[in-house]
C-alpha cells in the first residue's frame, strides 16, 4: 500500500499507534516525528529503536507506548538489527509465503552520527529496504547532555562546557544527509516539527521509496538546550528561519530546498532563547559568533549551489 501525501494538517489520519503516558519531557519534539511516521507509513510495519531518549521513555517494563512491533537491541546497532529483520522477512516471504512489512528505524544523534555510524553506513551500502529516521537533539540528552558529532559549533554541553578559555564545542556538525546521499541511496531529507506538512510529506516519500532512505529530524530539547518547554516550536521554527536548519530533500538525483528562506532572521534570535548558546552573545566570544555566522552562510550557499546543480 502506498503512503499518501497531505495538503493541510487536517488531512493527517486520526489513528494513533503511539500511546500517551510515555515519559518523554514536556516540549520534546520526538513524539511528533514518531506519531507522524506511524500515521504516514501504512501497516504492516515494525519499528527498530536504538538506545536513547525515545527507547527509555516509551518502554519502561511492564508498559509500552507502541501499538506496532517494536525492537530494541543496543545503542550502536539499530541499523544492523533492522538489516537482519528486513533480510529475514524478505526470505520468509519467498520461502514460506509470510507477509512482508515495512521496517523503520529511530535513532538519536548519538546512535546515528557517532556510535551507530558504521552500522548505518553498512545498512545503506547493502541497500536494505529500511527507513532510517534520526531524531537529532544535538547531544547525548538521555545520558546527561554530552556533546556528539551532531552538536553544533559553539554549543555548551556537559562535555563541551562554555568555559573561560574554550567557549563550548569548537567543531562543526557532521552533514548526515550528504553522507547518506554519498552511499547512492534514492531519498534523504531534513525535517523540522515547525513545518509539519513538509515533514509529513517527506515521511510519505521515504515510505514510498524502495531501498534505504534517511530522514534527519530536528527535535528541540528544552532539557538539554535550556529553554522554556512552551517555546519548543518557536525554537524549531527559528532554526529554519535563521538558515541554521535548512529544510531540503534529495529525491533520486535532485536536490530541492523545500522551505526557502529569502530573508533570514538574525541567528542571535535563535541563540538568545537557549541557554546552550547564551555565552556566544557575550563580547569576549564575538569571534566565535562571527565564525558560526560565516559557517551558516557558507552552508546555505553551498546548498543553494547543489540545488541549482541537481535541479
Amino acid at each position: 500500500m502506498e503512503a499518501k501525501p497531505i495538503k493541510t494538517l487536517k488531512d493527517i489520519p486520526r489513528v494513533e499507534q503511539f500511546a500517551p503516558g510515555h515519559r518523554l519531557c514536556a516540549g520534546c519534539g520526538i513524539p511528533q516525528v514518531v506519531r507522524f511516521t506511524l500515521k504516514a507509513v501504512p501497516d504492516p510495519k515494525v519499528v527498530v529503536n536504538a538506545t536513547g531518549c525515545l527507547e527509555v521513555a516509551t518502554t519502561i517494563f511492564p508498559y509500552t507506548s507502541w501499538k506496532v512491533p517494536w525492537v530494541h537491541n543496543a545503542f550502536e546497532n539499530a541499523a544492523a538489527t533492522a538489516s537482519g529483520v528486513e533480510a529475514a522477512i524478505k526470505m520468509l516471504e519467498k520461502k514460506y509465503g509470510k507477509k512482508r512489512y515495512k521496517v523503520i528505524v529511530f535513532g538519536g544523534d548519538g546512535g546515528t552520527f557517532d556510535i551507530g555510524f558504521q552500522a548505518l553506513s553498512g545498512m545503506l551500502e547493502r541497500g536494505h529496504d529500511i527507513m532510517y529516521i534520526c531524531y537529532d537533539n544535538e547531544a547525548y540528552m538521555n545520558t546527561g547532555i554530552q556533546r556528539s558529532g551532531a552538536t553544533p559549533k559553539g554549543a555548551h554541553t556537559t562535555t563541551s562546557p562554555a568555559g573561560k578559555v574554550i567557549p563550548g564545542k569548537q567543531e562543526k556538525k557532521k552533514d548526515l544527509i550528504r553522507i547518506a546521499i554519498a552511499h547512492g541511496i534514492k531519498y534523504a531529507a531534513t525535517m523540522n516539527p515547525a513545518y509539519p506538512v513538509d515533514m509529513y510529506n517527506k515521511i510519505v516519500k521515504a515510505a514510498n521509496t524502495p531501498g534505504p532512505t534517511v530522514l534527519h529530524y530536528f527535535t528541540p530539547c528544552p532539557t538539554g538546550w535550556y529553554f522554556d518547554p512552551s517555546r519548543s516550536i518557536e525554537v524549531a521554527r527559528l532554526a529554519v528561519q535563521t538558515r541554521i536548519w535548512p529544510l531540503y530533500e534529495y529525491d533520486n538525483g535532485k536536490i530541492r530546498i523545500t522551505v526557502p528562506v529569502k530573508k533570514p532572521k538574525p541567528v542571535e534570535d535563535y541563540f538568545k532563547l537557549q541557554g546552550r548558546f547564551r555565552h556566544l552573545l557575550r563580547p569576549e566570544n564575538r569571534w566565535l559568533l562571527e565564525e558560526i555566522k560565516r559557517d551558516i552562510e557558507e552552508n546555505w550557499k553551498e546548498l543553494e549551489r547543489l540545488a541549482e546543480v541537481y535541479k
Binding site: N73, T81, V85, E86
Partner: peptide
C-alpha cells in the same frame, strides 16, 4: 546484531 533481528523476525 543482524542475526538477533533476523531471529526475532522468525528466521
Amino acid at each position: 546484531s543482524a542475526a538477533v533481528g533476523a531471529s526475532l523476525a522468525g528466521a
